[in-house]
């Protein structure tokens, strides 16, 4: 028998680890007086810059760039908030009851309340607790992020077969990773995938909240963030 060839799927996880973007910082404007508007302005600016990074990151997901441009757009328009939130969740894992929007922008319950983000804080923390309990690893987190993108249930997909292929490849990568690294828990891949409905629910809430902030018109928002918000509603 020929020696077993190294599965390209384990390669997907290592590839996703390499494709992981550098940290970006919130850098709140030091000249602006502290207020809820300042906090929301900082977060919207951070999200806008993160979106640029997410779009670049998506291109490195094996198979993503071979989708039609329209399908790439549809997946990103559906999943961007889930990807943003998953990143916040992962950064917040080492912390206790605090959300790490960026390493220089960490919000506790009180700060979230003052900013009108208490509901979101509670939902995101529920996700943080789930992943803490699972002791989710970076390999799993990067794979879940890619799965959230591929599985975003956009209603505008042109080539569902190609998107299904991407989902299958990423799903298989997660399963292969779990069966080699977590033999002690044969249901671990399933447990991880079962966190995705709460992620979807939280992202939906977040989009609605930021959309209503946009409608109120008090918080300046950059064009890409606005464009992505509008694509969701």
């Amino acid at each position: 028998l020929p020696p077993p060839t190294k599965k390209p799927l384990t390669k997907i996880v290592s590839h996703l680890l390499v494709a992981e973007p550098e940290k970006i910082y919130a850098m709140p404007d030091p000249t602006m007086p502290e207020s809820d508007i300042k906090a929301l302005t900082t977060l919207c600016d951070l999200a806008d810059r993160e979106l640029v990074v997410i779009i670049g990151w998506a291109k490195h997901i094996p198979g993503f760039s071979t989708l039609s441009l329209g399908d790439q757009m549809s997946l990103l328009q559906s999943a961007w908030m889930e990807i943003l939130i998953l990143s916040i969740v992962f950064r917040s894992l080492p912390y206790e009851d605090e959300l790490v929007y960026a390493e220089d922008y960490i919000m506790d319950e009180e700060h979230s309340r003052l900013t009108g983000l208490l509901d979101l804080y509670v939902s995101i923390l529920q996700l943080v607790r789930k992943y803490k309990k699972l002791k989710v690893e970076k390999e799993e987190f990067v794979t879940l992020k890619a799965i959230a993108l591929a599985n975003s249930d956009s209603m505008h997909i042109e080539d569902m077969e190609a998107v299904q292929k991407l989902q299958d490849a990423l799903h298989e990568a997660l399963q292969d990773y779990e069966s080699s690294q977590h033999q002690e828990d044969p249901r671990r891949a399933g447990k991880l995938l079962m966190t995705l409905p709460l992620l979807r629910q939280t992202a939906t809430k977040a989009v609605q909240h930021f959309y209503s902030i946009k409608v109120q018109g008090k918080v300046p928002m950059h064009k890409l963030f606005l464009e992505m918000l509008e694509a969701k509603v």
Binding site: V18, V52, I55, L69, M73, E227, M228, A231
Partner: peptide, 20 residues
Amino acid sequence: KEKHKILHQLLQNSTSPVDL
């Protein structure tokens, strides 16, 4: 597509996705 100009542009920008 016109409505989603920036996303469209950023996706079209040349980065060479690494092939596996």
